[in-house]
């Protein structure tokens, strides 16, 4: 058991370091964005902090002094990152509200969409992958292969547009955009889920094929276990390992997809907010939303790491 906790601690430490790297990168790029903006930085930051209504030249001067905006850029960067380290994300430059409050409401929507996408992808990929994996090189296998290659080539936003045109506008089965209820979740979830499943169903298939062709599968059979028992006791567990690992690989696609698909469906989540903020040059919001998405990515990766450890005893003590 002690070994188990030690290995979990290693995972936590690695992911913690990753989280710090994410924060530093987001901070640096946001700072560069700020520097690249035309006009007076002190003015904008003051506006960011206190809102446009509450600020004047004096406030801007105070900010200039406080942040040392006359100082060389690297001193300023240090101060910028220092603020980030204190979880001070500032106020939206457009709305004047604290960035943290905005994100708090958006995060729930994004998590809902991410969760829906994973569920949708598993609903497609697992049955498809197991069925083709148990019948490799069958007609079904070849059809699924072709479908996977094709769907993999369709970018999420293009798929989203097509799904909207067909199911929402033409057939009127689902709402077009926005969020009023759970029915809004279905189209964006499947837009992302289909993209994820296009690859992961092949991963499931290959994992099942490998397991079925393994020496240990044959030995489990020849020692007397039935096909069904062998599948349940040995094959599925071994096949699950690469599949869960692959979910980890797909997380990057998932987060990227959330950003784009939220925009397509006007989904009130963080990704939509990020795109909106970039367009409106609301740097405080860009920083806050990008940071949250980056940390969400780290957190989901952590979940996958721990799930792998749950399945694979080799990662624990032997």
């Amino acid at each position: 058991m002690a070994h188990y906790f030690k290995s979990v601690l290693t995972v936590l430490a690695a992911r913690g370091l990753q989280a710090i790297i994410v924060a530093v990168i987001v901070g640096i790029v946001s700072f560069a964005m700020m520097q690249a903006l035309p006009g007076d930085a002190a003015f904008r930051i003051a506006a960011g902090r206190y809102g446009y209504d509450m600020m004047d030249a004096a406030a801007a001067e105070a900010v200039r002094l406080e942040l040392g905006l006359d100082a060389p850029w690297f001193v300023q960067l240090w101060g910028w990152l220092g603020q980030l380290a204190q979880f001070d994300l500032g106020n939206s430059l457009v709305y004047g509200t604290p960035v943290v409050d905005e994100i708090a409401t958006q995060l729930g929507y994004s998590l809902l969409l991410a969760g829906g996408a994973i569920v949708a992808s598993l609903m497609i990929a697992l049955p498809m992958g197991v069925a083709t994996g148990l019948n490799p090189d069958s007609l079904l296998d070849r059809i699924c292969m072709g479908l996977s290659v094709f769907l993999r080539a369709v970018p999420a936003f293009a798929l989203g547009v097509v799904l909207v045109l067909v199911f929402a506008v033409q057939l009127k089965l689902f709402p077009v955009a926005g969020f009023r209820g759970i029915e809004n979740l279905i189209l964006p979830s499947f837009t992302l889920g289909i993209g994820l499943a296009a690859v992961s169903n092949r991963v499931v298939r290959d994992a099942v094929v490998d397991a079925m062709n393994s020496d240990w599968q044959l030995f489990a059979r020849t020692k007397g276990l039935s096909a069904r028992l062998t599948l349940a006791r040995h094959v599925l567990r071994n096949a699950a390992l690469p599949v869960v690992t692959y979910v980890g690989v797909q997380l990057a696609y998932l987060i990227e997809g959330v950003v784009i698909v939220e925009t397509v469906f006007a989904w009130p989540g963080i990704g939509h907010a990020l795109v909106h903020a970039i367009f409106g040059r609301d740097i405080a919001m860009v920083q806050g939303t990008a940071l949250t998405l980056g940390l969400l990515y780290v957190a989901l990766n952590l979940c996958v790491d721990l799930a792998c450890r749950g399945i694979d005893p080799r990662e624990r003590a032997v």
Partner: peptide
């Protein structure tokens, strides 16, 4: 397959690879 294990036992060629790596 019903004979396997009950009437005929099989000792595999490479035992390492014949055992389930996760059990």
């Amino acid at each position: 397959a019903k004979l396997w294990g009950r009437d005929i036992a099989t000792l595999p060629q490479e035992p390492w690879r014949a055992l389930d790596p996760l059990m």
